[in-house]
Amino acid sequence: MIERISRLGRRGCDLLEAVGRAGLFLAQSMFGRPTMGGISLWIAQVYMVGVLSLAIILVSGLFIGMVLALQGYTILVDFGAADALGQMVSLALLRELAPVVAALLFAGRAGSALTAEIGLMKATEQLTSMEMIGVDPLRRIVAPRLWAGFVSLPLLTIGFSVVGIYGGYLVGVEWLGVFEGSYWGNMQASVGFFNDIGNGIVKSLMFALVVTWIAVFQGYDLIPTSEGISRATTRTVVYSSLAVLGLDFVLTAVMFGGLS
C-alpha cells in the first residue's frame, strides 16, 4: 500500500519535472537570442512545416465544407431556413472546425515529422556536436522550428476556412440550389470579423504553440534509439491531439461561452 502511494508520488514528481523541463525548454528557445542565418533557417522550416502541409489541409478543408453544407442543408430545409446555410457553414468552420481540424492534421503531418527529425539529430549526435562547436541547439535547431510552426498553423487554418466555405458554396449553391445572395448575405450579416474570425485565429495561434512545442520537446527529450524515436513520434500525435481538444474546450468557454 505504502509502496503504491510512494510510486504515485514518484510519478507526480516525474511529471512535474517533465513539465518544468518543457517550460524551461520553451522559454530558452523562443526568447533566446536568435543565431546567425536566423531568417533563412526559419524560411526553410516554414517550407517544411507549412508549405508541405498545405495540400492535406486544403483538401480536408474542401471536403469538410462540402459535408457541412450537405448535412446542414438536410436539417435546415426542414425548418424552411435553408437560407441560413452560409451562416451555419461559415460559423462552424471559423469558430471551431478549421482551428481544431487543421491543428489535428498539423500534428499528424508536421508535428510527427518534427519529432522524428530532431530525434534523429539527437541519435546521430548532431545536437551534441553542435553544442561542442559552441552553438546552442535550442536556438539553432529548435527556435526556428517553433517559430515556423507558430506562424504556419494560423495561415493553414485561414486556408482551411476559405476552402471550406468555398466547398460549402459549391454544394449549397451550385448543387442544392440555395440562393447565392442569401448564402453570402446571411454569412456577412452574422459573422463578425473580430468575434469569429479573430477568435478562430487566436485559437489556432494557441494550438500552433502547443502542438509545435510538444513535437519539438518530444524530439529533443527522447531516448536516442530507433525505438525511442518511434515512441516519441506516437506520443507527439497523441499528446498534441489531446491537448488541442482540451484547450479548445477551455478557449471556447472563454471566448463564446460568456465566461469572460
Binding site: 508549405v51 506562424v151 495561415l155 485561414i158 476556412s161 454569412m187 470579423f193
Partner: peptide
Amino acid sequence: SVGLFMLAGILGLVFLGLKVSGL
C-alpha cells in the same frame, strides 16, 4: 514557395474579412 504561402494566407484573411464577415 514560402513567400507565396504567406501571401496566400494574408489574401485568405482578406477574403474572410471582406466576403465572409462583410467588413
